[in-house]
Design a protein around this nucleic acid. Structure first.
Length: 582
RNA sequence: GGGCUCGUGGUGUAGAGGCCUAACAUGCCUCCCUGUCACGGAGGAGAUCGCCGGUUCGAAUCCGGUCGAGCCCGCCA
């Protein structure tokens, strides 16, 4: 076994050993120097007395010097043991000491848990990574990959690598383009996902494919979304024509990742299937956090003829009135903050009322008759001390605003148990959506999924009612997986685009390879892709996804350590046939 | 592209018109110290308060612009 600073590998008491690592801290008592030596496994105390051969060297040491020490492992006397570190019952009595490399004064401290702003951490990521927490993250992430691979292999999935230099895809996120030198004026694109390749693998006779795939998207990041490249567990299964088979194949892995690997509780052992429509109506989100209730209640019918113009107007214009009940009361400033939140989501304001002594008071209560108030209180089962928050507008807007407030209040009221993971499958996404901005029909998710009901369903007059055989998995309010039963039938493919007004030529120009492949005996197939960074983030209770990878870009896509992106050698640019640079 | 918040010694913060010749913690440098483990003690260096402009007798503090960061909206099939 390689000698590390883990207690198990240090050797026996009074054995003479050699250890290497970084100077975590140094305590100089004049004639006696203590050094905390650190490596990826932990810390051991080195003790050097005046008179020992290494003493002179020990006096020169500074934080983060890299050293090698030789000495005798010695048990500490009872009163000197330090229970805070794993090796605290022993220390190394140093006989000789070598400096392997020095360190300048540090821009960020390694031996501290003090908050450091992220810009500095990323600029000196190699120092940041030395910190025990980041060491643990990297180690745990490697175990996570192993755990996943083991499951996939034991379920007969074959790992296949797909190209990084791929093709631009017309739907979806913005591509990273790579200019071709050999074919000037032409571009590769880094894959947003191996979507088309994995479907071609199905046509290619691979029964079950998986890959821990790097995916590239040039879109603005978020706390739960990396800029540039990120990782997916991408998989696909042939001769599968229903999503349930994919879901039940992958469920055990995710559940075990939560419990066995992550050491957390599942909210429920059986994972609910919730339709997109139900999720939107009950939680105002297609990625609801199910760890708490506070569901949206529809009051449209009850309040159609109420005395409050804001509500009746919304309803008469085809909109809805909904409410959430919160078992809590709020200060003026809290209400203001929530109102700001609602406005940020597009609401005009945040009407609310408070139930006190069996009476509704505050904000908009005065606009309602006792009968209307009674309907509200009854439907929401509201009690003294509850606050009822309303939304009225188009249904989609109401869902969005109240869904956002629900999540916000879940945080504020501490309803999100960090030790519990609530999983759910969201199913039956709408195939088409109405794009308000372009004032036309567009794909809801992706054009590769099979419409439920196939060709026949596409003929429906209610295009917005067509459901895709498409499913997401959500965990604690995060979307962690997206998948679908794929459309492997060229006729259906043409028709899917035809509904949006795209002709055959368009489809062939964009998806030529897939379409022609599908003409040569494509098996039905289905699959999905899990966001590995995001799942790991949930499992480790991190709120920022940049905490779970070694070298993330910052919010504007810059690697502040490596200084990328950067300008290129003009010669290389010229060779690519690119003429104009700013 | 838009909104909100932030920018003060190496690091993390305080200061919110004059008390600032800018404070505290930590780090750094010098010296003392043989049982510390966030060692302790004495001394010292280090910031024109992101940048530009304005208001004012006076600006780290107020205003405008600009640059950078974080979060959110848009975007992310």
């Amino acid at each position: 076994m390689k000698r590390t600073l883990a207690i198990e590998t240090l050797g026996n008491i009074s054995e003479t050993i050699k250890v290497q690592g970084w100077v975590h801290s140094r305590r100089d008592h004049g004639g006696l120097i203590f050094i905390d030596l650190r490596d990826h496994t932990g810390i051991i105390q080195l003790t050097i007395g005046d008179g020992s051969e290494g003493f002179g060297t020990a006096e020169e040491l500074r934080d983060e010097y890299v050293i090698e020490a030789t000495g005798k492992i010695t048990e500490r006397s009872e009163d000197l043991k330090n229970p805070k570190i794993r090796t605290g019952s022993v220390e190394l009595l140093v006989e000789s000491l070598i400096i392997l490399n020095k360190s300048e004064a540090l821009p960020i401290q390694v031996n501290s848990t003090q908050y450091i702003n992220e810009d500095n951490r990323l600029r000196y990521r190699y120092l940041d990574l030395r910190r025990p927490k980041m060491q643990d993250t990297l180690k745990k992430r490697a175990e996570y990959y192993t755990y996943i691979r083991k499951y996939m292999e034991s379920n007969d999935f074959t790992e296949v690598a797909t190209p990084i230099l791929a093709n631009s895809s017309p739907e979806g996120a913005r591509d990273f383009l790579v200019p071709s030198r050999v074919h000037q004026g032409m571009f590769y694109a880094l894959p947003q996902a191996p979507q088309q390749f994995k479907q071609l693998l199905m046509v290619g006779g691979v029964p079950r494919y998986y890959q821990i795939a790097t995916c590239f998207r040039d879109e603005d990041p978020r706390a739960d979304r990396l800029y540039g490249d990120f990782y997916q567990l991408d998989l696909e299964m042939s001769f599968v024509d229903n999503g349930e088979e994919v879901r039940s194949t992958m469920e055990p892995l995710i559940k075990n990742l939560v419990t066995e690997f992550g050491g957390k509780k599942l909210l429920s052992d059986s994972i609910p299937r919730i339709t997109y429509a139900d999720a939107m109506n009950k939680y105002g989100s297609d990625k609801p956090d199910l760890r708490f209730g506070m569901e949206l209640t529809d009051l449209t019918d009850e309040l159609r003829d109420c005395g409050f113009g804001v509500f009746t107007n919304a309803i008469s214009q085809g909109g809805a009135v909904k409410a959430i009940k919160v078992s809590s009361q709020f200060s003026r400033s809290q209400i203001d903050e929530m109102t700001e939140k609602a406005k940020a989501e597009g609401a005009g304001g945040m009407p609310y009322m408070v139930i006190e002594n069996g009476q509704a008071t505050a904000s908009i209560a005065k606009f309602f008759s006792p009968e209307d108030l009674n309907k509200i209180v009854t439907k929401l089962e509201a009690n003294d001390g509850d606050t009822i928050i309303f939304g009225s507008d188009k249904l989609e807007k109401v869902n969005k605003v109240l869904g956002s407030l629900r999540s916000y209040l879940g945080d504020k009221l501490d309803l999100k148990d960090p030790d519990t993971v609530a999983l759910a499958w969201i199913i039956d996404f709408p195939f088409y959506e109405f794009d308000e901005k372009l004032n036309k029909l567009d794909f809801g998710h992706n054009p590769f999924s099979m419409p439920k009901g196939g060709l026949e369903a596409l003929e429906s007059d209610d295009k917005l009612g067509i459901v895709a055989d498409q499913y997401d998995m959500v965990a604690n309010g995060y979307e962690i997986c997206s998948g679908a039963v794929r459309n492997h039938n060229p006729e259906v493919m043409y028709r899917v685009f035809d509904v949006l007004g795209y002709d055959k030529e368009y489809v062939e120009s964009k998806f030529g390879a897939m379409l022609s492949a599908f003409k040569f005996g494509a098996p039905p197939h289905a699959g999905c892709a899990f966001g590995l960074d995001r799942i790991f983030m949930v499992l480790t209770n991190e709120e920022n996804i940049r905490e779970v990878i070694a070298f993330p870009k910052n919010g504007s896509g810059v690697d502040v350590m490596m200084n990328s992106p950067s300008s290129a050698d003009p010669k290389a640019v010229k060779e690519l046939g690119i003429k104009s640079l700013k």
